[in-house]
Simulated scan of single mutants.
Amino acid sequence: MKSFLASLAAVLLLAVPLAARAGTVTVKGSDTMVILGQRWAEDFMKKNPNTRLQVTGGGSGTGFAALINGTTDIGMSSRPIKDAEKQKLGTLPNAAVTEVSVAKDGVTFYVHEKNPVQALTVEQLKGIYLGDITNWKEVGGPDAPIVVYSRENSSGTYVFVKDNVLDGEDFVSSAQTLPGTAAVVNAVAKEKNGIGYGGAAYAKGIKELSIKKGQEAIAPSAENIKSGKYPLARDLYFYLRARPSGELKAFIDYALSADGQATATKVGYFPVK
């Protein structure tokens, strides 16, 4: 009987939002979104000093895992939820999985500032990341081996590139896996033959490649990403295990407000409205 009651208490505890249990709203997941989530949290707490927000990264997959095991209120993700994740969340007590698009981004491929290559097609990027293209001279660059940087498989950006650039195929085994977009940018900034990818907001100290489509080279600019013209534009999401209310709803409403979307623009992302 004690064991049964303990199990029942654990289930009921998971059904209660963390904010209601601890007086703190927790936000976890996408490394792409960490900078933005932290800025939103800082601004929101200035306007609402009685609310405390904790924002941490770890990757989109980590955010979904935290939602499933009840250790975060909001899961940040740079990719849509997978069917398996949605199914797991849907089996939890009182679950009503909620998806909120909070900003737009463009997955950008980075090269060293001195790399003469300005644009690549999606097929060329696929060739590089599958290991079929190994030298920059094959795509109009210098005669030098391509050093490939990638993200870990818990990253939403990793999943996005695998699905939308590699057509579901696996990354070349020689790709160097790094723990966050900032680490990818830092590596490419130091390696003149490197290539990496991540969110547009992180593209500092390196060169962003345009995507060639026919005769046109499409830059990851604000206009092209907001309009969807840039081929690798995407939405960024908040996910919740129930419909938001109280502090959770107030925070999401702020993120979607004119002030919140202006913050997204300042940080380097793009508004959804």
Rank of each mutant, 00 (worst) to 15 (best):
K162A: 12
P93Q: 09
N94Y: 04
V161F: 13
W136V: 01
A183Q: 08
F171C: 14
F160N: 08
Y197M: 14
V139K: 10
T181G: 15
V188A: 05
G63Q: 03
E123F: 04
G57Y: 12
K190T: 09
E85W: 02
N164S: 04
Y149D: 00
T121D: 00
G59Y: 05
D105I: 00
R151P: 02
V97P: 05
F160P: 03
A200D: 06
L166T: 15
P142R: 01
G59R: 02
Q124D: 09
I128H: 11
G196S: 01
S154W: 06
V97L: 06
G57S: 11
A187K: 15
T157H: 10
T177D: 03
E99K: 13
K126Y: 13
Y129H: 14
L166M: 15
I74A: 12
E85R: 00
N94W: 02
S155P: 08
S77T: 11
A65E: 09
L166Y: 15
S77K: 07
T157K: 04
T134P: 02
D163R: 08
R151K: 08
G58P: 09
P93S: 12
S78K: 04
V111S: 09
G63V: 02
V172W: 04
A119Q: 05
I133E: 10
T177F: 05
T71P: 07
V139S: 14
L92G: 14
P145S: 13
K82Q: 04
P93R: 06
P142N: 10
A96V: 01
Y158H: 15
G61A: 01
D167Y: 05
N193L: 09
V188H: 13
D167K: 06
D170R: 10
N186D: 15
F64C: 09
N135Q: 03
V148W: 06
I81D: 07
E152G: 14
T108D: 10
P179H: 04
I74V: 09
S154M: 07
K190A: 15
I133A: 13
K162P: 04
G70M: 07
Q87P: 01
M76L: 15
E191D: 15
E113G: 08
T121I: 03
D143C: 10
L67G: 13
E191G: 11
G57K: 08
L67F: 10
N164V: 01
G199V: 00
A66I: 03
S154V: 11
V185M: 01
G194M: 08
S101W: 02
E191M: 06
L92A: 14
A65G: 13
A175K: 06
T98N: 12
G61M: 00
Y197S: 15
G140H: 02
N193K: 08
A200H: 03
I195K: 00
A200M: 01
G127Y: 04
G194S: 14
K104P: 07
G90A: 11
R79E: 05
T177E: 08
S150L: 03
L178R: 01
A200S: 11
A103Y: 15
L92K: 10
L125A: 15
N153V: 00
V161K: 14
V147Y: 11
I133N: 10
A175P: 03
N193R: 09
